[in-house]
Structure formats: structure tokens, C-alpha cells
Design a protein around this nucleic acid. Structure first.
Lengths: 284, 284
DNA sequence: TCCCGAATTTCGTATGGTGGAATAGCCTTT
DNA sequence: AAAGGCTATTCCACCATACGAAATTCGGGA
């Protein structure tokens, strides 16, 4: 039996639209973990990959493009797509390209109702108290994805939408999620597939720096994004208790002018409470 | 109880039913002309079944219950569930039961944005013009599922929520969707799995009656629900052009006292326009 | 502590999925 | 119009993959 099934499964998600990785990219087998554990069901992973690729691409792609981005042969992709079209999770447009289907709407609504209802209340409370935009994000492959938000009432505010995906090393929620992982090697493994692109002069740009940053986050119990994603934006984030809600984090972010140290300090306390309320909602 | 445990695994549609594989090779000869040569990918169908069962059950079930409803052995279900948990489409609660995961939220939001944005505008216009609740529904297995709605401003109004599923033979959208299918045999085939339960004295209760009803719908170009689902409720529905959006229908419904023939007549014109606008949005 | 039911893991098997190659459709080009 | 190039779709033989019976572990009650 050849272990040549060395295709980076979940990572194949959105290979495109990213900057060139370092020359040594393409790390099929990492010796550290004994890979052949329980990878899950191949076809299901691939089907989900396709859904995510579509979502990341704005919801519409021709099959060839899907096949290329998923790094799969076209007949395989075609078969998976047909299965999901048949079920209404995808639809095929007149020009034969594929788009997200309607069946996803009620599913998402249902999933949202299980958290979203309370979650948006919690987020709104944060905004009421602090005045700045509050977000709920989840770990999604090698990025973080926003699942709910309450906008600040200031005109000058963060503009994020549900579904937006951001890098883990350069954002508050991302770093909070990374720090939540058991060990740094796991975190770095996830990071490596995308590298550490620098968005601003403050972005954490090396693995060593990231290690130190994660250590600091664990010590003080919250993550800070000091203009690392975008100049002028400061953000505080806390991950929920991983026992009840692994891979979920809340954050508050706003312009540096308003996000004073004093506000950040208040935010930390409120975020702790919010994280605990949210985790409680998710537990049962 | 709102949760109809009695309802069979409506989601586990075809997967389990047609499993009888005869020992001798060769394609299973199908009764109808060109049968589905490609049934799709089994594992993906099963994974989707599980998602739908969970959604139908209110979003939370223990594994044994899922296995029972999907009519699959537990190890198989476990493997599928783990795959989806790993990806964030499901989560496992502390009591080990499974629930819909966060990753569904942005997916649903994205899918919604591709139609919902314009769709809800179109639906609201209908409400503004007619005063009665407008709905958008899609064919979902052997039922219809609401994906968007704009509520009437009257206190006495339909209460439907996104994700609600209704039978095809007893509702306006359902009948419009059935009439949209190529031939009656296909429609009746879908219907047979659930039968023709009578909700009121007006419900279409026989296949013969349904055939006649579908014929009438095709002739006049719209479907009427004359208190067939619920006494006192009248509904007009039109399916979108199947070339651009197969399996999608719009409807307007309200109490018989307000849904006069005159209003229905006006509604038909407006629904035609709405269906055309919606189909246009979905085309590209 | 032991017990019982449910969840999880193991592992040999054959079923279902895979992907190279061939075919059919579509749209642009000349 | 006809030819050309491109993409989607279908076919099919192989074998890797997912399957599921049985064994094992886990957790919660008595």
C-alpha cells in the first residue's frame, strides 16, 4: 500500500487568490504526525471543499475552475457537483457554471438560530457598552471566518460581513484561536499553508515572533491586534472555552483613536463575560 | 409538540430506499425511460441526509437517533459525523449529541446573498402591493421548503419561518412546483413517498384528482391553494422559469376574507412579474 | 465498586468511487 | 456556414476507499 495519497485534504480549499508562498512550499507529508489516522470520508471532504471554494469565490464558478482549485480531476468534481445539485445545495446556471444552492439557506438559518439568536444579543450588548463593533468568528480551515457581528454606531467603523475570511496571524480573533490550540506546532502547521503575509509594518512576520505572541496571549488570557491587519485598527479578542465551543472567538475592534488602553481594559472584562455567556449558550 | 418525530426520515430520501442490489452485474434497469445513470456519490448523499435530519429535528440529536433515522449502521454514521465535525459543519455537544455547526452560517448567508438580497426586495414589493404575506420556496426532496418571506402587515397573517417544510400536494407552492415537472409520473413518483394526507376537507386526496389539478395549473399558469392546507387560508403560487431556476416558486397567501377573487387576480399578474424578476436575478 | 447502554475504534472485505480516455456540446473564429 | 478549440459530460475497468459486524472503550447510574 502506497501512502501516496498525500494530497493536503482540507488545505486544498482556497489555493487561489493567495500570494506566492515561499519556494519550499508544497509540504505533502509532515513527518511529525502519523498521518494515516482517521482522515474522515474522502468524498465528503471533497464535497465540502467544493462548497467552500464556491463560497470563497463569491458563489459562482465554472467546473474547470473548481476542479483546478480543488486539485481534482474533472470527472470526480463533476460527479460530486451533480450529487449536490441533485440535492439542491448547488445549482447550475444557464452558462453551466455552478453556484451555491437554495437548500443552504434554511440550513444556515437553522444553524444561526441555534447560536445567532443569543449571540447577536450578546454582541449587541458589547456594542452598547463599548461603542465599538463586536464580532463572532470561527476557525475555518487555515483562516478565521466571521459568523455574526454587531456594528458600532459610529460612522467610522469596521466593515465586516458574515462570511468574510481573514488570516489567523494578523487578526485578533485569529491569534486568539491559534493560542487556543493545544500546542504551537499545531498552530504553526496550520499557519504554514498560507505563510505569514505582512499586511502592515506591525504584522507578526516570523514563526518565532508568532510563538512569542501566542505565549503572551495564553498568559494574559486575551489577544490584541495592534494595527496588524490594517493601519489604524485595534482589536481585542478572546476565544470561548474550548471544552464547550472549540474554535470560536469574540472580538471588539475599532479605530486606534477610540480604542484607548482604558477602553481595551474594559473590553477585556466584558469580552470574558460575553465569551462565557456564549459558551453557555453553545453547551446545551 | 412542534417536532414531528412521527415524520419519517423525510430527508433520507432515496439513498436507503433503492439499495437492493441484485447479485448479477449490470446497470439496474429502471422502469422509466432514461433513468438516472449516475445516482451520485453515496457518501455525500448520506452526509447531506444527516445534515437534513438534524435540521429537521431542530438541530440536535444523539448519534444513535441519527443512525436510526438515516437507517444506517452506527459506525458509518459516526465516520460521516466526524468528518463534518472536523470541518466545522457540525459540532459535538458536551453530552456527545451532535448539532449543526457554525460553518453553515456563512455558507447560508452567502447563498442567501445571491438571491435573498433581491428576493426579499421582490417579496416586500408584493406585500406592499397586495398586503398579504409573500413567500419564496424551493423543492426539497419530497417537500417544499421556504427560503425567504416577507410578512403581511396585518395582525392576522400567515406565520411561516425560513426552513419550514410543507407537503407538495396541499400547498400553493408545492402544487406549482409539481406542475413544473416534466410529466405527471415524475410528480406522482415524488408524491408517493409521503402519500396524500388530507389536512382539510379541500385537500387533494387522490392521484387522479392531483393529475387533474396539475393539468389545470399548467393551463392557467398558476396554482391555487383553496384552504387545502389549513382552513381559512387561500394562496396563489407561481413557479419560476425552470430554465433559469428549476424548483423555485413564489406565493402570496392570506385569510379567505381578504383573499378575494379580485385580489387573487391582481396577485397573479404581480406574481408573474415577481417570478420573472427573481428568475432574472438567479440566471446570472 | 460494578453494570449497562451508547459511542468509538478496529479490521477484513467488496462495494462504491476514482480518474484516464473518449464523446458530446458550446461558442468563437475564419 | 464550417472548422476549430474549449469545456462539460459519459464510460468503464481497476483498486483504493468506505463499509459495517464485531470488539472495545467510555460515561453515567445504582
Amino acid at each position: 500500500m502506497s501512502t501516496q495519497a498525500a494530497s493536503p485534504q482540507g488545505a486544498a480549499t482556497q489555493a487561489a487568490a493567495t500570494q506566492v508562498a515561499s519556494p519550499e512550499a508544497g509540504p505533502p507529508e509532515v513527518a511529525s504526525s502519523q498521518g494515516p489516522a482517521v482522515p474522515g470520508v474522502q468524498s465528503v471532504h471533497r464535497a465540502l471543499d467544493l462548497l467552500e471554494i464556491l463560497a470563497a469565490a463569491g458563489g459562482r464558478l465554472p467546473m474547470a475552475e473548481l476542479a483546478a482549485r480543488a486539485q481534482l480531476p474533472t470527472p470526480t468534481v463533476h460527479r460530486l457537483l451533480r450529487t449536490m445539485v441533485e440535492r439542491g445545495y448547488l445549482r447550475q446556471l444557464p452558462d453551466r457554471s455552478y453556484a451555491l444552492g437554495f437548500r443552504l439557506v434554511p440550513l444556515g438559518a437553522r444553524a444561526n438560530a441555534m447560536v445567532g439568536a443569543n449571540a447577536s444579543g450578546v454582541l449587541h450588548d458589547l456594542v452598547a457598552e463599548l461603542g465599538e463593533t463586536a464580532n463572532l468568528a470561527v476557525l475555518s480551515g487555515d483562516q478565521a471566518e466571521y459568523v455574526a457581528q454587531a456594528p458600532s454606531r459610529y460612522a467610522m467603523r469596521m466593515f465586516t460581513e458574515v462570511g468574510r475570511r481573514v488570516d489567523l496571524h494578523s487578526t485578533g480573533v485569529g491569534k486568539a484561536l491559534l493560542a487556543q490550540l493545544d500546542d504551537d506546532d499545531e498552530a504553526l502547521g496550520i499557519i504554514r499553508s498560507r505563510g505569514l503575509p505582512r499586511y502592515t509594518a506591525h504584522t507578526v512576520g516570523t514563526e518565532t515572533a508568532l510563538r512569542a505572541e501566542l505565549r503572551r496571549i495564553r498568559e494574559r488570557g486575551f489577544a490584541l491586534d495592534e494595527q496588524e491587519q490594517e493601519i489604524g485598527v485595534r482589536c481585542v479578542a478572546i476565544a470561548l472555552d474550548p471544552a464547550s465551543a472549540p474554535g470560536v472567538a469574540v472580538s471588539v475592534s475599532g479605530p486606534t483613536a477610540r480604542m484607548t488602553d482604558e477602553l481595551v481594559e474594559r473590553a477585556v472584562g466584558l469580552l470574558r463575560a460575553a465569551a462565557s455567556r456564549l459558551a453557555g449558550d453553545l453547551r446545551d
